[in-house]
Simulated scan of single mutants.
Amino acid sequence: MTDIPALKLKNQICHSLYSATNALIRAYRPLLDELGLTYPQYLVMLALWDEDKVIIKDLVQRTRFDAGTLTPILKRLETKGLVSIAKATSDSRQKLLLLTATGKQLAEQAKQTPDNISCQIKMKPQDAQQLKALAEQLYSLIQNNLVSEISD
């Protein structure tokens, strides 16, 4: 047993974020089951509902999934008939993602999901915005540090 505060689980930001993320994904699960989506598929669909007809490289940046993670998600969404994957006309090496009519219609079913999650969580909107801003700041700091280490 250690008395080092830095090694106490209760003092770890990573543990709090990990636990909160898992709880949030569990809260989403029943809502996403109604849509026939997993949480990662939902994130991809959110990105595509925001902007359709994008190349995979752009979707990698927007979702923050690496290409190896994104590819099987896209294949499953294609199998479900929600997206189609085609060669980009500007560069045949690039893959273009397009929402199908079914994928576009699913947005209508999904539009209540954010409100339904907010009702479950009962967090004040300003607290939720602050939490998101802090999470984005943390992500940015970590990414910038990783980029610095790679370029050194």
Rank of each mutant, 00 (worst) to 15 (best):
T102F: 01
L141I: 12
P114N: 13
S118N: 14
S19W: 08
S19K: 14
A27Y: 01
K124A: 12
P5G: 01
Q12L: 15
T102G: 01
I142N: 04
E78I: 01
Y28V: 01
A20F: 07
G81S: 08
S19G: 02
I56C: 07
Y18D: 05
T2K: 00
S19I: 14
L48I: 04
Q105G: 02
S148L: 14
I142Q: 10
A23L: 10
D50I: 07
D66A: 00
I13V: 15
L48M: 13
T79G: 05
L131V: 13
I55F: 02
E108A: 14
G81I: 09
V54D: 03
P114Q: 12
L138W: 05
K95H: 03
W49E: 08
P72E: 03
L59P: 12
Q120V: 11
N116L: 15
P114F: 14
K75L: 03
Q120I: 15
K132T: 13
K80A: 12
I73A: 00
L31W: 05
L96G: 06
T21E: 14
K53I: 07
Y28C: 08
T102P: 01
K95W: 00
M1N: 09
H15F: 12
I121T: 05
D91V: 06
T2A: 02
G81V: 09
E34R: 13
K87N: 09
L32V: 11
R93Q: 07
T89E: 10
I4G: 00
P72T: 03
T79I: 06
L74W: 05
N22Y: 05
M45H: 05
K132S: 13
K95G: 00
K80C: 03
N144G: 09
L24S: 04
L146R: 07
L35G: 08
V83H: 00
I121V: 14
Y139L: 04
N145M: 14
A133G: 05
R26A: 07
Q129M: 14
Q61E: 14
A107G: 10
M1Q: 08
L46P: 03
P72M: 03
K8C: 11
L131T: 11
S151F: 05
G68E: 06
A86N: 11
L106P: 04
K122Y: 08
E149A: 14
A20T: 14
L9S: 06
D52W: 05
Y139S: 01
T2Y: 00
L48D: 04
L146F: 09
K124P: 02
K87P: 00
K87D: 10
Y18S: 09
S19A: 15
L138M: 08
G103H: 07
S92E: 15
E78R: 12
Q129H: 10
